[in-house]
C-alpha cells in the first residue's frame, strides 16, 4: 500500500429511528490521516461509523472513497465495532483464517504473523472462549492485518486493552497510516496517534 484513497464525506445527515443525530456533516480525510470522533453518549458516533461502513443508509448525503466503485466500497473498509466477530468454538487461528478468506482482497499477513504483531503468538490454537476480554480484542485487531484494507473504522479501539496493548495498538495504527491508510475512530480517550477531531454535538 503506497498511496491510499481519499475519504470524502459530503453533507451527511444521520438518523437513528425517528431522531436526527447530525446534519450537514462534511469532511475529507487524506491518505495517511486519522480522525477521531468524539462527543457525549448518544451523539451518534457509532451510527456515523456504521454509515461510513455502508451498514446503515444515511438519511441524506454521500460517502465516497476516491478511485473506488461505490458498489464495492465496503470491500475497502475494515469495520472494528464493539463486538469482536469471533466465534468462541473456533481457535484464534481458525477465526483469522476464516476472515482472511471471506474478506478477500490482496493477501495480507498470515494468521500466525498477525497474532505475533498483537503479542498473541503463543495462543493460536486455543479456542477463543478461553481468552480474556483484552486478548479477544487483540485477536480482533489481528483481523485488520490478515486482509489489508485502506480505511479502518474503529469503535472505541482501546476498550479492554492494558497499557502495553494500547501502545501496541498505537504502533499498529501508526504503521497503517504511514503505509497510506486512513483511520476513523470513535473515542473517549486520546487515540494515541496524531489525529484530527470531529466533535458530534449532543443535541438533535
Amino acid at each position: 500500500m503506497t498511496r491510499g484513497p481519499r475519504l470524502l464525506v459530503e453533507n451527511l445527515a444521520l438518523v437513528r429511528g425517528t431522531r436526527r443525530l447530525a446534519q450537514g456533516l462534511s469532511f475529507a480525510l487524506e491518505s495517511g490521516q486519522a480522525l477521531s470522533i468524539t462527543g457525549p453518549n448518544g451523539a451518534g458516533k457509532s451510527t456515523l461509523l456504521r454509515v461510513l461502513a455502508g451498514l446503515l443508509a444515511p438519511a441524506a448525503g454521500t460517502v465516497s472513497l476516491s478511485g473506488v466503485d461505490p458498489q464495492e466500497m465496503a470491500q475497502h473498509i475494515h469495520y472494528a465495532g464493539h463486538a469482536e466477530a469471533l466465534k468462541n468454538a473456533l481457535t484464534a487461528r481458525e477465526n483469522l483464517q476464516f476472515w482472511s478468506a471471506l474478506l478477500g482482497g490482496p493477501a495480507g499477513l498470515t494468521p500466525q504473523q498477525a497474532l505475533e504483531r498483537v503479542n498473541l503468538a503463543h495462543l493460536p490454537d486455543l479456542p477463543v472462549s478461553y481468552l480474556s476480554a483484552g486478548q479477544r480484542r487483540r485477536v480482533a485487531l489481528a483481523r485488520l492485518l490478515v486482509a489489508p484494507r485502506p480505511l479502518w473504522l474503529m469503535d472505541e479501539p482501546s476498550t479492554a486493552l492494558d497499557t502495553a496493548a494500547q501502545a501496541r495498538l498505537a504502533e499498529l495504527m501508526e504503521a497503517h497510516l504511514s503505509g497510506g491508510g486512513l483511520i476513523v475512530a470513535a473515542t473517549h480517550s486520546p487515540l494515541g496517534v496524531p489525529a484530527g477531531e470531529l466533535m458530534l454535538g449532543g443535541r438533535p
Binding site: 456504521r50 461502513a53 455502508g54 451498514l55 465496503a74 470491500q75 473498509i77 469495520y79 465495532g81 464493539h82 463486538a83 469482536e84 466477530a85 469471533l86 466465534k87 476472515w99 471471506l102 474478506l103 478477500g104 482482497g105
Partner: peptide
C-alpha cells in the same frame, strides 16, 4: 450478536 454479520456484509 458477535458482530460477524456486519463483516459478512462487507466481505467479498
Amino acid at each position: 450478536e458477535d458482530g460477524s454479520l456486519d463483516l459478512l456484509q462487507m466481505g467479498a
